[in-house]
């Protein structure tokens, strides 16, 4: 009897814990994902068709299309993030190793993630505006004879968006890496330093192997999110002048047809583009897992 009651209590407890997230997941994750697939195959009249896909491939071939540019910039952004990744880890590492002023950096380096993007982009675009010394120096260094409007000029806009992203992301993921380095047992490093190990071999031979699982996981995540790679182009110049990325493009599609016109065909086309992108992303994801299979096995949550 007692046992039965216990079991009953357990079932109730489990239901309480899992029902809300599962219902939420079915409504807000499963349903829209399936309806995205259906929407991708509908035309503006709601009839089944492959129009959206033919349009997608047509636009992808067009050298001037937004979509093509968006893909190009997304890959570029991803490449830069990939190259920058080790440097971002180094930031946390040096703070962990207590470079002079690390206590100060530990706090200040959080600023880019604490300050809201709406504010930082607003300030940033004014700092690089024609009245500021940055734009003026660019004009002088390149001997242009005028001060360029960096965000409204194809020659500079995309570079500026990428630099802004690098600037703000320089400290990297302090929370994750701070936590990871903090877990390295101090004895290990102390004994190493007593053995007279140099900085470089300490880093490469002790630190990196120890945190490798985290690196591997982050790499997988980075690669799987490849099509989401984007700077703040939307807030900086609305994705104009060659700065649009895939995620900015997608966001703009939803935003511009929101409100009363939410049934517009724009959403169907967006779904088709999303579907194609997802298929490629699945491919990449499987590939990268095969590639890092060994690494991924080591990951433990």
């Amino acid at each position: 009897m007692e046992k039965k009651k216990r079991k009953f209590n357990e079932v109730i407890f489990i239901i309480c814990c899992i029902s809300v997230p599962i219902i939420q997941w079915l409504i807000f994750y499963v349903y829209p994902n399936f309806s995205t697939i259906f929407m991708a195959f509908r035309d503006s009249q709601g009839v089944w068709s492959l129009d959206n896909f033919t349009r997608f491939f047509k636009e992808l071939k067009l050298p001037t299309s937004d979509i093509r540019l968006a893909f190009r910039n997304t890959f570029l952004t991803f490449g830069i993030l990939f190259v920058a990744y080790p440097f971002k880890v180094m930031v946390s590492y040096f703070i962990y190793k207590k470079v002079p002023g690390s206590g100060f950096y530990r706090i200040v380096f959080f600023l880019p993630s604490i300050l809201f993007a709406v504010c930082t982009t607003m300030v940033f675009s004014r700092i690089i505006g024609v009245n500021g010394f940055i734009a003026q120096s660019v004009g002088e260094i390149l001997d242009l004879g005028y001060t360029p409007e960096l965000l409204q000029d194809e020659r500079f806009a995309n570079t500026v968006v990428l630099l802004e992203m690098l600037w703000l992301q320089f400290p990297g993921d302090l929370i994750i890496w701070g936590g990871t380095f903090a877990r390295i047992p101090e004895e290990v490093l102390e004994s190493a330093s007593l053995d007279g190990v140099t900085w470089w071999s300490e880093f490469t031979k002790i630190i990196v192997p120890m945190v490798w699982p985290t690196v591997a996981l982050q790499m997988v995540l980075l690669f799987c999110g490849i099509f989401g790679a984007s700077g703040n182009a939307f807030l900086l110049n609305n994705g104009s002048h060659g700065t649009i990325t895939l995620s900015v493009w997608m966001y703009k599609q939803v935003l511009e047809s929101s409100g009363a016109s939410y049934t517009a065909n724009v959403y169907n086309y967006l779904s088709a583009v999303g579907l194609m992108t997802t298929i490629v992303a699945i491919g990449i994801s499987i590939g990268i897992r095969k590639f890092t299979d060994k690494m991924f096995d080591d990951v433990e949550f």
């Binding site: 024609v130 409007e149 110049n237």
Partner: peptide, 12 residues
């Protein structure tokens, strides 16, 4: 034209 228009007119 660029000569006649105030600098910043395209970005501000």
């Amino acid at each position: 034209t660029p000569e006649y228009v105030l600098a910043g007119s395209n970005s501000k």
